[in-house]
Nucleic acid binder design. Sequence first.
DNA 1: ATACTATTTACGAATATTACTATCTAGGAG
DNA 2: CTCCTAGATAGTAATATTCGTAAATAGTAT
Lengths: 143, 143
Amino acid sequence: MEELVALLREKGYKITPQRRAVIAALLESEKFPTAQQVLEIVKKTNPDVSLDTVYRNLGLLIELNIVYEINTQSSAGNVFEIVHIHHEHHHHLVCLVCGKTECIDICPVNQDYIAEVEKRGFEVTGHTFEFYGKCQKCREAKS
Amino acid sequence: MEELVALLREKGYKITPQRRAVIAALLESEKFPTAQQVLEIVKKTNPDVSLDTVYRNLGLLIELNIVYEINTQSSAGNVFEIVHIHHEHHHHLVCLVCGKTECIDICPVNQDYIAEVEKRGFEVTGHTFEFYGKCQKCREAKS
DNA sequence: ATACTATTTACGAATATTACTATCTAGGAG
DNA sequence: CTCCTAGATAGTAATATTCGTAAATAGTAT
């Protein structure tokens, strides 16, 4: 936590209680939370925080590659994962039936890809990669 | 066009004028359109079509891997690309400044990935992959 | 500790996207 | 051609997400 705060401060961003609370919520959440769920956790300690603030802070953290947004293709909304400094960069399997997301410890992006893209004058700052389908549990539960 | 209609019919989906119009709009659009833009094109021939219908049809086409939804991370909304049968499956570079999307003729998903994922009991039906960053034009236009 | 300024916030309003439901229609059966 | 039914549509209402703005505040300089 303090590592992240230091990083933000270093980049010139202000450390507000709301911002700390959003980060804390992401750190303490067991499942990947939606923006709404982040807000609920945040409200336990900071009852007046608005959803807007949650989204704004998530957006900032995403820009800084501190948070990864997982597009769930579900109406319940996207979920967010904080990138722990001691974790490998990775991606996810999203079940379109139950909405659960599992991690997979692989990333397809290597230097060849980056080189290919930058050869075209494009500056890469991030990427998304997700598999969609049906998880084991939902496959077994076929009617 | 008729190929796609035949495919849909084969799978048991009904061919409505609205559905044809959505497909036609995607085929005739030069840029990747947003849902709103698809609706505008559709309305030229079918003025009473609702946005809801556009989204529903796009959703169906996405499920069938006939259309690819590009998450633009922009408030203007996502854009949609119809997968021409004679095109390689590919992905995109999305400029976060101007919102333009360029195609790149590479896809990182190979049999090894699929095998790794299915080993875990997950059935893959699709995937997304996008690079985000800044396009050449926007890099040159730095202030 | 006080004043200053750029960020940040809360709130309300604007879009994007999805869901619900009564009605309608494409495609098949007779 | 007419009837029938599952799937599709239009319209409205519900969420998810973003934006605009005036007021509040973190961090810096005094």
